[in-house]
Design a protein around this nucleic acid. Structure first.
Lengths: 116, 116
DNA sequence: AACCTTTCGCAACCTTTGGTTGCACTCAAC
DNA sequence: GTTGAGTGCAACCAAAGGTTGCGAAAGGTT
């Protein structure tokens, strides 16, 4: 019923560094591996690998500009990712609600029995 | 402004196997490492490690029953996790919307300039 | 033009994490 | 008490995230 979710996409946004990178790119606009690494607790090379991952799943795309590579969020793809996030969230939410309802029903029944 | 999100919690639900395990526990009720491993493409030992991770972040808890250990979703914690999911989602969503608005403003301005 | 700086990509290496197999232990059932 | 299912622990492997080191290309300076 639920999550035939893109596991690739999930694992891409599952990493805290990559999530922060997306945050930064959204907040400050396009950036390079070097510029991002200055605001993150890891080296440029590590950032570069993360950028490659995000690029591979299509969440960002690069634009060569002279000796630099400007990375930018692909809005449509990120929107799709957000949709998947909330899909899983609401699936779980629904199940939790159902469980709670059942539990309450049982509780009610038990109380009635005791009342007899 | 945003994500001082529990990275522990995120990486816990970031793993596709662990997400599926939560799905199974929610759908079928409490289960053991062995019962879960029968419905997953990994060995019992792998499942056991994942259960340990989920247990450590508090998303599930175990209940010894004879020679078995029954694992069960902690509903309150999962609800908290779902909330964090949707928090990140809506942060990105808001930023996307803001970017789109700005882009439209620029577009409008440019069009006006050309119109002059 | 020659030089220096910045940014990048590649390769080697280390550590952690997810996965496996193998083994010893416990508890229930016969 | 022996047998069988379910666990836990340890050793071992492969992939992923991270680091350092190096050489190459683009831009600025003199």
């Amino acid at each position: 019923m639920n999550a035939v979710v893109d596991d690739e996409l999930w694992s891409a946004i599952g990493d805290p560094i990559r999530r922060t990178m997306i945050d930064l790119l959204l907040a400050d606009g396009p950036g390079t591996a070097t510029s991002l690494s200055r605001r993150l607790p890891v080296t440029r090379q590590a950032v570069s690998k993360h950028l490659a991952v995000l690029d591979r799943v299509g969440l960002i795309h690069a634009e060569p500009a002279g000796r630099e590579r400007h990375y930018q969020v692909d809005e449509a793809q990120l929107a799709r990712a957000v949709a998947q996030l909330s899909a899983v969230g609401s699936t779980w939410d629904a199940r939790l609600r159902r469980i709670k309802r059942i539990a309450e029903t049982i509780e009610r029944t038990r109380t009635n029995d005791e009342g007899d």
